[in-house]
């Protein structure tokens, strides 16, 4: 019985952890959107900033991956 509750908690926690992915999605969307609006204002400078764009995406996305990882840990490792 106790084990079932633990398992249920783990699954609920995994589901909750997946909400973090939404945050990452918002972050990535914001970065790309701002990049795009900047790039449309000044297309000549856009090319030199793609590296910064990808670094920003990577940082933002990492947190989504962390939440995914937490979900996986709750699902499989706890």
């Amino acid at each position: 019985m106790e084990g079932d509750i633990v398992q249920m908690g783990a699954y609920i926690g995994a589901g909750l952890a997946c909400m973090g992915m939404g945050g990452a999605a918002v972050g990535v969307g914001s970065i790309v959107g701002n990049y795009l609006s900047g790039a449309l204002r000044n297309p000549s400078a856009a090319q030199s900033q793609t590296a910064m764009l990808f670094i920003g995406i990577a940082f933002s996305e990492a947190f989504g991956i962390f939440s995914f990882l937490v979900a996986l840990l709750l699902m499989f490792a706890v």
Partner: peptide, 15 residues
Amino acid sequence: MTTEATEAAMAAGHA
């Protein structure tokens, strides 16, 4: 089984 695993999760490697 799960109880054991949960307890052991505290000691990371083993779990």
